[in-house]
Amino acid sequence: MRTMFFTQAIDDALGQAMADDPRIVLFGEDIPLLRRNLLVRFGPKRVRGAPISESAFLGAGVAAAMSGLRPVVELYMVDFLGVCMDALLNHAAKVEAFSGGKWTAPVVVRAPCGGGYGDGGQHEQSLWGWLAHVPGLTILVPSTPADAGGLMLAALQHDGPVIFLEHKLLSETWLEFLGSGGRRTVQFGVPAEGAKGAVPNKWEPVPIGKAVFRREGSDITIVSVGVGVHRALEAAKILETEGISAGVLDLRTVSPLDKTVVCEAVAKSGRLLVVDEDYEGFGLSGELSAVVLEAGISCKYARVCTQTTIPYARHLEDQILPNKQRIYASIRKLTQ
């Protein structure tokens, strides 16, 4: 086993896959700087910078995937998908259905997501629920370095479009680039176990659509992804001292959802709390309640999500994003 930072793990897995598969190419804005380590290993033919033209280069990535390449298209932030959503919504997601299952677009879209460092409401969104709403897209949201690398490998082997979301609070390089800018005068609530951890010597794919328990618990099942998993674990630790046993399930994949594991756990605990950094309305948290209801499970339910546009001010942002205190209060209420 080795130890790696979050983004280091993703790039390491990507490097392993690129060495094995010459069809994999990377492109996006500022890639020569951001992926410089891969650039000096694989050369400028496979690692290239793009203009600030997301509609063009993401759309091109989709078609390049349809015609033999395995592109990893990188966006500066998932928020910027707003500029070029057509490529995913109307093209990547539709090819397989429109062609009667005969053609797919195996493109990986890699994008930083999430907040907690004061960049405001246009640069800190999660948006996985918005993306997962579209049939035909696979959405991955890892929460540890080992999963990040393993899921990147799985994404590269998958035969359809995959959106790979890299939470900036877990990413040593993104947080340095966008949050601190080299300063030591700012602090962020980085979950240590998500930012750095053990990874395998040789990467193996982590299966898409498989959730994993980060903590077993019998009184309540907390379901989350990304940084939310770590916030849930912090709250679960406090609750344990108060005699409440909270299980934490890390979905890892938002679409397709691991419905089986969710239903089994909630059927046993009788309580479901969704911790979702994405927007509350019409998203993952509501979807999970539908999943358990459709399975005929009756349970107590609550959610801790982001309800409004993310404010710029750090102290306001800390209250808006799911935090340990809100999760704790919600569980106390559910277990009363």
Partner: peptide, 28 residues
Amino acid sequence: IPLTLSFLHSGGAALHERLEGLKAVLAA
């Protein structure tokens, strides 16, 4: 340090492609 380790990493492009990559980084 990571740049050098990656440049020397086994598996990847031929030396001239790696040098082109290094040139691109240095150019910036």
